[in-house]
Amino acid sequence: MKISTKGRYGLTIMIELARKFGDGPTSLKSIAKDNDLSEHYLEQLAAPLRNAGLIKSIRGAYGGYILAKEPKNITAGDIIRVLEGPITPVEGIENEEPAKQALWMRIREAVKDVLDTTTLNDLKHYDDAEPQEAYMFYI
């Protein structure tokens, strides 16, 4: 499974809103500027996030976006599913032999577990955490 810019930038929006949770609305313009991203593209991503009930838009001169729920109640999986669709490492596994099906299912479950147990609250504090040892896995 490859996460596209939709998922990556959508996570960026949501993490920034989580960092400013309780401080009032945040404009996509400021998020785009702070992260060197296209404001127009972020606007396209905000619509499905709003339709899914993850963010709310506030109109007016001091408007912008806020999280619809507390950061601890929104997972990375919620965001990725809205923007990328179902979490599936391989399409059409029903046609694979049982050994491969089992492998693909284990990979899917591992990815789902990470996404569904990682909240925006975890991600907004990531910069505050001690550096973690980096691992690279080859499959």
Score class of each variant (00 low, 15 high):
45 L>S: 01
47 A>N: 07
48 P>T: 06
51 N>I: 08
51 N>K: 15
52 A>I: 10
53 G>W: 12
53 G>K: 07
53 G>L: 15
53 G>I: 11
54 L>Y: 09
55 I>A: 03
56 K>G: 03
56 K>V: 07
58 I>F: 04
61 A>W: 07
63 G>M: 09
65 Y>M: 06
65 Y>V: 09
65 Y>R: 07
66 I>H: 03
67 L>V: 08
68 A>S: 10
69 K>R: 14
69 K>D: 08
69 K>Q: 03
73 N>A: 08
75 T>C: 13
76 A>V: 06
82 V>S: 10
84 E>M: 07
84 E>T: 11
85 G>D: 08
86 P>W: 06
88 T>G: 02
89 P>F: 14
89 P>I: 15
89 P>W: 07
90 V>H: 12
91 E>V: 13
91 E>Q: 08
92 G>V: 06
92 G>T: 00
92 G>L: 05
94 E>H: 05
95 N>A: 04
95 N>H: 06
96 E>I: 02
96 E>K: 02
98 P>E: 11
99 A>C: 13
99 A>I: 15
101 Q>P: 11
101 Q>G: 09
102 A>P: 01
103 L>E: 14
103 L>K: 10
103 L>T: 13
103 L>F: 14
103 L>D: 12
104 W>S: 09
104 W>V: 14
105 M>H: 12
105 M>E: 15
105 M>D: 10
106 R>I: 14
106 R>F: 12
106 R>L: 15
107 I>P: 02
108 R>S: 06
108 R>Q: 10
109 E>S: 06
110 A>K: 04
110 A>P: 02
110 A>I: 06
111 V>T: 05
112 K>E: 10
112 K>V: 12
115 L>T: 00
116 D>T: 11
116 D>N: 13
117 T>Y: 06
117 T>G: 01
120 L>W: 03
122 D>H: 04
123 L>Q: 03
124 K>I: 00
125 H>K: 08
